[in-house]
C-alpha cells in the first residue's frame, strides 16, 4: 500500500478551476472549502494525478508520518 499523503495547495497560483476534483478517484467529499482536493486530511490513494492535471502545477504533497495517522484515529 502506498504511504498516505497530505496535499498542499499554493493558493496564490490556484485558479479554482476544479480540475483536481474532477480527476480525483475518491468517493464524494474529498474536497476543501475552496473547491480543490482536500488539504486537511490524508489521501490514502496517493495516485497524485491531481498534481499532474493542475494547469498551474500548484498542488504538492508530503507523506504522512505513521504517528499522525494514529493521532487522527485517536481523535475519532
Amino acid at each position: 500500500m502506498k504511504t498516505p499523503v497530505i496535499f498542499d495547495i499554493g493558493w496564490n497560483a490556484c485558479i479554482n478551476c476544479g480540475a483536481c476534483i474532477a480527476i480525483c478517484p475518491h468517493e464524494a467529499g474529498f474536497v476543501s472549502d475552496f473547491d480543490t482536493i482536500a488539504v486537511n486530511k490524508p489521501c490514502d490513494i496517493a495516485c497524485l494525478i491531481c498534481e499532474d492535471i493542475c494547469p498551474v502545477s500548484t498542488i504538492t504533497h508530503r507523506e504522512v508520518e505513521k504517528k499522525e495517522i494514529t493521532e487522527k484515529a485517536d481523535d475519532k
Binding site: A19, A22, P25, A28, G29, P55
Partner: peptide
C-alpha cells in the same frame, strides 16, 4: 453539477475520468 459531479458519485456511477481524457485548460 459539472465534471466533478458529486451526485454522480452518490449514485455510485462509474464517473471516474482518466487522466488521459481530461484536458487541462488555461
Amino acid at each position: 453539477d459539472g465534471v466533478r459531479s458529486q451526485v454522480g458519485k452518490w449514485a455510485g456511477l462509474q464517473t471516474h475520468i482518466k487522466l488521459t481524457e481530461l484536458a487541462s485548460c488555461l
